[in-house]
């Protein structure tokens, strides 16, 4: 579990730090205050290949500059945490061919000329240094493959993305571990009372039994159950890892929010998963607190942050659970 994160020169973050991170971290703030950017940075730290999908426009030679604060590509992006002293420097490489001296394990002829991309330079507690080159064409080169850096399993859940392949793989793993019955039971109790079963067909698609004569495709289900399915399958398959969820309220009716949160909090606790979730919804926050109290979770299980844009910087305002509770009771704005 990471307890802090520092981000420098990444998109809206000039020099940003979040401390006192807990197992559950709920993040809010107005538009353009860096909520999604924070999740991206954590994702990049532990899963550099996520550079390909964290931007809607992908990762290409036209937009790779936009990852840098105020387009400042002279300085690296730095993302670090005190957990294992992990530090990542990301440099823009406009011609990876020229950088091939760093790439000991790759044959230079594999690299075509003028590949643009990022060099990910890691350092960590055990002094290991790892270089990765990820270019905009989808190629990936790694040096010092023998060195191990401390990487946590980290998954970014994009709830707006309708692509299900990752979740199909996760469900397959859950079935193998014989955890699918519990998962289906939770979905049924929380949000989909008609759901009897979910199966993986031979063509690797998900089918659902809603008590009708035939199985239906998973895509026929509503957004709420799809969202909860994505979140739960990810928690079940990311033991002791980190999960990043942008706009967690997406697809849920307010009346199910309390039970949805209970299921998520219980699963996160059971699988030791650290969650970073953003939200714009006050109802989502209220129901989160209600679930938190009903489950009688410990005070140091969670923290709440609001990000605020101040001129060229983004700052965070941190609330303890009790401060958050009292703010809501007194109708103080928290978002």
């Amino acid at each position: 579990m990471i307890k802090d994160i520092k981000i420098k020169n990444y998109k809206g973050f000039k020099d940003f730090q979040l401390d006192n991170l807990k197992q559950i971290n709920l993040i809010t703030g107005k538009n353009n205050t860096g909520k999604s950017t924070l999740l991206e940075a954590i994702s990049l730290l532990y899963n550099p290949k996520s550079v390909y999908f964290i931007n809607f426009s992908g990762f290409n030679s036209n937009n790779c500059y936009s990852f840098f604060h105020n387009l400042n590509t002279q300085d690296p992006i730095i993302i670090s945490t005190s957990h294992n002293n992990l530090k990542l420097n990301i440099h823009l490489c406009e011609n990876i061919k020229e950088e091939q001296r760093f790439i000991k394990d790759e044959k230079p002829e594999n690299i075509t000329k003028k590949e643009t991309g990022f060099r990910f330079l890691y350092s960590s507690k055990n002094k290991a240094k790892t270089d990765l080159f990820i270019n905009t064409n989808g190629n990936y080169y790694q040096t010092n493959k023998s060195d191990k850096i401390h990487i946590s399993d980290t998954k970014l859940i994009n709830l707006r993305n309708t692509y299900l392949d990752n979740y199909v793989k996760q469900f397959d793993e859950i079935q193998t571990n014989k955890q699918d019955d519990i998962l289906i039971k939770l979905l049924k109790e929380t949000i989909a009372p008609r759901l009897n079963n979910i199966t993986l067909s031979q063509d690797n698609t998900l089918k659902v039994d809603l008590g009708l004569d035939k199985y239906l495709p998973f895509s026929a289900l509503g957004d709420g159950i799809k969202t909860l399915f994505k979140i739960l399958t990810t928690i079940y398959t990311t033991k002791d890892g980190i999960i990043l969820i942008d706009e967690i309220e997406n697809g849920f009716h307010y009346s199910v929010m309390n039970s949805v949160w209970k299921v998520i909090l219980k699963a996160a606790k059971e699988f030791g998963v650290q969650i970073f979730a953003t939200t714009h919804s006050k109802e989502c926050i209220e129901n989160y607190l209600k679930a938190f109290n009903e489950l009688e979770l410990e005070d140091d299980f969670d923290n709440y942050y609001r990000l605020e844009a101040k001129q060229d910087e983004i700052i965070s305002v941190e609330y303890t659970t009790d401060e958050l509770k009292n703010a809501l009771q007194n109708n103080f704005e928290i978002r």
Binding site: Y319, T320, D322, A327, N330, F332, I334
Partner: peptide, 23 residues
């Protein structure tokens, strides 16, 4: 700004702190 409940010290401090953290 009203801060209710000065007899519950912890609650009073939590509420005061939350008020000062309001956007």
């Amino acid at each position: 700004i009203c801060i209710d409940g000065k007899d519950n010290r912890k609650k009073f401090i939590d509420t005061l702190s939350a008020a000062l953290k309001s956007p």
